[in-house]
Design a protein around this nucleic acid. Structure first.
Lengths: 241, 241
DNA sequence: ATCCACGTTTGGTCAGACCAAATCTTTATG
DNA sequence: CATAAAGATTTGGTCTGACCAAACGTGGAT
């Protein structure tokens, strides 16, 4: 029964320019309307081509388009998965371009500088406006970070988790996505940094300095501590690429 | 003469998984290496399929991929144009997802809040670190903004130009691209705001207040002035969508 | 020199086919 | 009876060949 779909039996033939656009918007609608559930796989290509009365060529093109728009997440040999896009999707959609830009000249440093600037503003904001539950979260994360000094992998995770809190305090959903993007893109180029426990100790001290400045409600000290911390981190890894 | 290309006569057949990737990277190389000049059109599809020994299907898929990566800029019925991607390309690549996100719930406000936060940090930075040429640029832009109070279109342009300077002071190429993205995305939803001259006067006053605080080297005042200014702007347009 | 009709190039789409990886089914095994 | 191995089916990736309409280039008419 092909006629349970709102845009069924749409000819889209002979005369229409860009037939792909039609089915793109159709599937788009089905996704945002929830008719296609988030996380579920898209129907097979041959199915769709029957449903819309178009060739597989166009179906594939539409899938590609929707993938770049972040509404589908398609791995090479698998069915595309429906994704109601969040702010993360926006950043993952640019992955391709960014990886290019990072490969050029001082690309990584450029991005890292943006992170430094933004995160400095965030810790300043935290020092001024962090609520007690934010501070509690920071304290917990800091403690977990300290406990992981001897475990390289776990230390990295707790490190990221600590920084992530600053991006959450604002309450704006874009910023956590920005942070995840930073982590993804920068870690890509920081591979195998095999830091020692002493190195981790320095990092932890950096985290603690930031935290202390925040509970002191001293935005300048917090910002300064973060700049020092991220500066140290940069010096540590600058040679690895 | 098909053999002047480094990746010519690559079979890419029978056994190779994902033939498209090969030619994607090949064309990618040609673009970054300058063999394909920026701004020039890509060779015709049938040409490429001959060059690489692949079907047009794969050629088209590769073109689609490169387009999403920002290396090609393809309009519907025209030849794709080679683009050495800059940071702007990254943001224009997400246009699709973002327009989606902006349509949802408080999407525009969410993005606007990010802009407010970032720009507040930027004016603070400007108050602390702006060099004299930066201040000169601000002064010029402010003057042009004042002169355009009675011209709605020109006022908008000078308005944007004034704010743009703050994104440039850092010297990081990402931030101007961020600004252009903000302008593109937010203006898309601020259409036809037909402001009056009095309204423009208020805006100009906001700009001047920021500028004055910066030449006073007072970061807190500058930040506050910007928050007030952007807050006013928001109140003006909040009903228009 | 300018402009319009013409033929050619080229992107967009369709149809049918094949292969190999994924997935589902069935059967053999502990 | 659960589980793992073997087989059948689905499905994405690619190829070939074809057609149409828009874009482009060419040359003649004004």
């Amino acid at each position: 029964m092909p006629s349970d779909h709102p845009l069924d039996d749409t000819p889209a033939r002979a005369g229409n320019q860009r037939a792909a656009d039609a089915i793109v918007t159709a599937i788009e609608q089905d996704i945002v309307s929830g008719l296609l559930e988030n996380g579920s796989p898209l129907p097979p290509e041959r199915d769709l081509m029957g449903r819309f009365g178009i060739s597989r060529t166009v179906v594939r093109e539409a899938i590609a388009t929707l993938t770049t728009r972040g509404l589908l997440e398609s791995k090479p040999r698998h069915r595309p998965i429906v994704r109601r896009p969040g702010y993360d999707a926006a950043f993952s959609a640019v992955g391709g371009v960014v990886s290019h830009l990072l490969r050029q000249d001082g690309g990584v440093k450029t991005l890292y500088d943006v992170r430094i600037f933004l995160e400095a503003s965030l810790v300043r904001h935290a020092a001024l406006h962090a609520r007690k539950e934010d501070i509690a979260a920071l304290r917990t994360a800091l403690e977990q970070n300290r406990a992981a000094i001897d475990d390289p992998v776990l230390f990295d995770n707790t490190d990221v988790a600590f920084h992530a809190i600053f991006y959450r305090i604002l309450g704006n959903p874009v910023l956590p996505a920005v942070h995840r993007a930073f982590v993804t893109w920068l870690f890509e180029h920081w591979q195998s940094m095999n830091r020692s426990a002493e190195q981790n100790l320095i990092y932890y001290a950096g985290h603690k300095a930031i935290f202390d400045a925040i509970i002191d409600r001293d935005p300048d000290a917090a910002e300064q501590a973060l700049l020092v911390h991220l500066g140290e981190a940069w010096e540590t890894v600058r040679g690895t690429f």
